[in-house]
């Protein structure tokens, strides 16, 4: 035993300053994917493709940043995908209803955006209150609200698709497709949310409280952290970020249906874990989440750009890479 430890330490010593896999694991995986992508298809790094991948990462990305805080504080939210579909449906209904009085223009869209944030706030508040005040397991509460939101959007759409008024859509469209200096709006919003999230996690009392609650709730309580209030805040913030993601999503196809946002919750949770946040709570890393989202979307993109494997196996490849990315960073802990 003693021999084993000494050799292990000897091995580790010279490496330690150079590589800390726990931190750079996700980055290494991302870099490998990018290199693979470049080797397989010359168009991989083209402006168009990079923009596509970043913009489509934005929805899950914005949600995943919020999810990082929820998971860090020891919670979980399974309802975000259904919530996004439900909010998108309500937002479309609100805007369509206002067109006859306000006309198809920015006022209608701004009200629609505000509505999305309000609905997101309320949905998050509902989840959060049930978890903190009624003291029901987060898993059960959000599993329940996941079913509720999904049924409500199916019911609102009468089983079909809710489509945004055609003229409003023309005005709203640039919010997904245009931007500043060739960087489209979803990417800009994603970046701002990610930076704000990183600062909140690392440099504010709120972020430290999340980690404290996630690592030991009792200790946090004795240390005068308002456990319930911080928990509630994480769910409300996540709800509003879902609303924000919806604001970016609706102009893309101008519609919402029961097929909108299916499995987004799992993609968001996967991104958070790939990024190095601990599923049990206690430690969160927002920049890691961003890397996680990019990894997930790059896998799909690379598989689409090449014909290496049967499309039936796409899910398997994705699964292997997710597990590998996590193994890579947990290795140090295992030692």
């Amino acid at each position: 035993m003693a021999d084993a430890t000494t050799t292990r330490q000897e091995l580790r010593k010279p490496r330690r300053p150079a590589v800390n896999l726990h931190v750079v694991g996700p980055l290494v995986a991302l870099a490998v994917l990018i290199v693979v992508g470049v080797l397989l298809n010359p168009n991989f790094l083209s402006y168009g493709n990079v923009t596509n991948v970043l913009a489509r990462s934005a929805f899950i990305g914005i949600i995943a940043v919020g999810m990082t805080f929820v998971i860090t504080s020891g919670g979980l939210d399974l309802s975000v995908g259904s919530m996004a579909a439900f909010i998108a449906g309500l937002m479309i209904l609100v805007m369509n209803a206002l067109v006859p009085t306000l006309g198809p223009g920015w006022p209608v869209i701004l009200i629609g955006m505000a509505a999305a944030l309000v609905f997101g706030f309320l949905a998050g508040l509902g989840n959060g209150l049930l978890i903190t005040r009624a003291r029901i397991e987060a898993f059960i509460v959000t599993l329940g609200s996941m079913g509720i939101f999904r049924s409500l959007i199916t019911w609102l759409a009468d089983g079909g698709t809710l489509s945004l008024n055609f003229q409003v859509r023309d005005v709203y469209r640039p919010v997904y497709y245009d931007g500043i200096l060739g960087v489209s709006w979803p990417i800009i919003v994603f970046l701002v949310v990610a930076i704000a999230g990183e600062i909140a996690m690392r440099h504010t009392a709120f972020g430290r409280h999340c980690a404290a609650i996630g690592s030991n709730e009792q200790v946090a309580r004795y240390s005068a952290v308002h456990v319930e209030r911080v928990r509630l805040a994480t769910y409300v913030m996540l709800g509003m970020l879902v609303g924000l993601a919806t604001i970016m999503y609706v102009p893309r196809l101008g519609s919402a249906s029961s097929a909108t946002g299916v499995l987004w919750e799992l993609e968001a949770i996967a991104a958070v874990i790939i990024g190095g946040t601990v599923l049990k709570g206690g430690f969160g890393r927002v920049w890691g989440t961003v890397v996680g989202v990019l990894i997930l979307n790059l896998i799909q993109n690379i598989l689409n750009l090449t014909d290496l494997v049967s499309p039936y196996l796409n899910g398997a490849i994705q699964g292997v890479i997710i597990v590998l990315a996590v193994v890579l960073q947990r290795q140090k802990k295992a030692l």
């Binding site: 083209s46 168009g48 893309r252």
Partner: peptide, 19 residues
């Protein structure tokens, strides 16, 4: 596979167009 879904079809087609 676009899975009879608007969003999946959108991303698959984006990638076809890049390729």
């Amino acid at each position: 596979h676009g899975n009879w879904n608007r969003d999946s079809a959108f991303t698959v087609m984006q990638d076809f167009l890049s390729k």
